[in-house]
Design a protein around this nucleic acid. Structure first.
Length: 458
RNA sequence: GCUCCGGUAGUGUAGCCCGGCCAAUCAUUUCGGCCUUUCAAGCCGAAGACUCGGGUUCAAAUCCCGGCCGGAGCACCA
């Protein structure tokens, strides 16, 4: 099995599906999981040098360590002898038609004059392509299929073209570059690929590539196609679009919580196992699907809920003055069910509560400040209350609070940000996932003057 | 225009190949209830689907034909 990305950005959730499902089949049935970088276009889909490493990192994080990593751009000279053999067997010809001309021939099912060239003529022209006597755009090497094939998409397809631009990885080492159908077909054979899962946008590739396999006497792998995947919360996205948006400064980078990359998920505290379960559950259907992050979040919650410590965070804080014997210190459990000890939070007569909580209160209401005490609201503006006692008593509304000298906390969310004050202990959770009570799960990303956390989900 | 591929609850998914055990699985979602020092989690319950029309058959989600709807390919992109 293989996963064959173009490294023009880091893996997205769409890539994650390919990585996870392919590697899962290998885990289940044996075989090898290969990452193959299809980076044979130095211009239109120009690869990004950093992205190669990003793929490997994210694969490992996703629990899909590849058995082999190959990079097409470093192997182009291995493709040339195969092209030559193909020409010798009469399976390909050098076509000098202008693009628009050939397009018309294709649509009408007309064979061009280059198709009848002899093997010797083709070999000579091929060498001219290789050694620079042929200009860029001057000719392509075409695989002979059938110009009367009922599906125009299959008719004599191009296998190599001349590109003089420098490649980010191998520079100007090659001037004749293979196109995907050729490169992919040859590598699949070279690596002994038995099963391919790929997007249904490549469904016609099989028909094209079978001609090549036929000329060379190779056996074509089993293929499954799957539909497009869309995510409600992110809409449709493409790596190149994201890249533009990031370069334009719309996002802080590839790890921005608003972006559907694997690394952004990691920085939000989404666990690889949650992604794996989700992607495996999706299966390999051919239907286009439009999924919701909710399912991923639900999987993730099952994993992190038992592990995440609880902390107080008050967004849009407003001060509440309390009259009476408010304890100076609160002892709150780090986790509601697991026996993990307590955290101590300084309290006192002046505390922060959420503006939205205050908005739901009326004078005379009794509320519980969680793990601290009960109070009765005596005034709304300014917010004032009276200490009632430390005991819980009968059921009352329970809200969280924060000390007035607590650290500033900023939570970056997929759809904005929240700012407020939290308990000092949050700083101890750097890099970890915690639950801000009555708010949601976050990953603490940086600790400084302001603590910055990325929102995972509720 | 030519070609190919799909269509099960709001969203995914199982079942379809090899027709009956399907008054259709599981998850998510939404809504109730229980529990609870979080509007979390957990537990209990409810809601909600075979695209339509023909045909074959004792019997169709499953097989056949047609319509409708959706997606993809027809690049010197991947």
């Amino acid at each position: 099995m293989r996963f064959a990305p173009n490294p023009n950005g880091p893996p997205t959730l769409g890539s994650a599906r390919g990585i996870i499902v392919n590697s899962e089949y290998v885990k289940k049935y044996g075989g090898k999981f290969i990452i193959r970088f299809d980076d044979t276009d130095p211009v239109k889909k120009r690869p990004m040098p950093e992205a190669y490493g990003w793929y490997l990192e994210d694969c490992t994080w996703l629990g899909a360590q590849p058995d082999l990593v190959i990079t097409a751009s470093e192997r182009v000279d291995q493709y040339y002898p195969i092209a030559e053999e193909l020409i010798r067997r009469g399976g390909a010809y050098v076509c000098g038609c202008a693009q628009v001309v050939f397009k018309e021939h294709k649509d009408k099912g007309i064979e061009c004059e280059h198709r009848d060239q002899t093997v010797e003529q083709n070999l000579d022209l091929w060498r001219q392509m290789l050694d620079g006597r042929m200009p860029e755009g001057g000719a392509v090497l075409r695989v002979k299929t059938d110009m009367h094939h009922k599906d125009p998409a299959i008719r004599d397809w191009p296998a190599f073209r001349i590109v003089t631009a420098s490649h980010p990885l191998v520079g100007s080492k090659y001037r004749v570059w293979p196109l995907l159908d050729f490169e992919s077909a040859v590598e699949d054979h070279l690596q002994g690929t038995t099963h391919i899962i790929r997007g249904k946008d490549l469904a016609d590739s099989g028909s094209r590539q079978r001609y090549l396999y036929g000329y060379l006497g190779w056996e074509y792998p089993q293929v499954i196609h799957w539909g497009r995947i869309k995510i409600h919360q992110f809409g449709s996205f493409s790596t190149s679009k994201l890249r533009k948006a990031i370069e334009a400064g719309e996002y802080t980078g590839w790890e921005d919580p608003r972006v559907p990359t694997v690394r952004a998920m990691r920085c939000r505290g989404i666990r690889p196992e949650a992604l794996r379960r989700f992607m495996i559950d999706l299966g390999v259907g051919e239907t286009d699907i439009s999924i919701s992050m909710d399912s991923i979040y639900a999987e993730n919650r099952k994993i992190i809920d038992p592990e995440a410590n609880r902390r107080f965070f008050v967004w849009e804080p407003v001060a509440l003055e309390i009259e009476g014997d408010v304890p100076a210190l609160a002892r709150a459990p780090l986790h509601p069910t697991a026996d993990r000890g307590f955290r101590e939070i300084p309290a006192g007569k002046r505390l922060f509560i959420c503006k939205s909580d205050l908005a739901g209160l009326q004078v005379g209401d009794n509320i519980r400040l969680k793990d601290l005490c009960n109070v009765e609201i005596t005034s709304l503006e300014p917010a004032q209350a009276r200490f009632l006692g430390k005991d819980m008593g009968k059921r009352t509304k329970i809200i969280q609070w924060a000390p007035v000298d607590g650290p500033k906390v900023r939570v970056m969310k997929p759809d904005g940000m929240d700012e407020g004050v939290g308990e000092a202990g949050i700083a101890e959770e750097l890099g970890k996932v915690v639950q801000f009570e009555r708010y949601g799960f976050v990953r603490v990303n940086s600790v400084g003057e302001t603590i910055v956390a990325n929102f995972a989900h509720r």
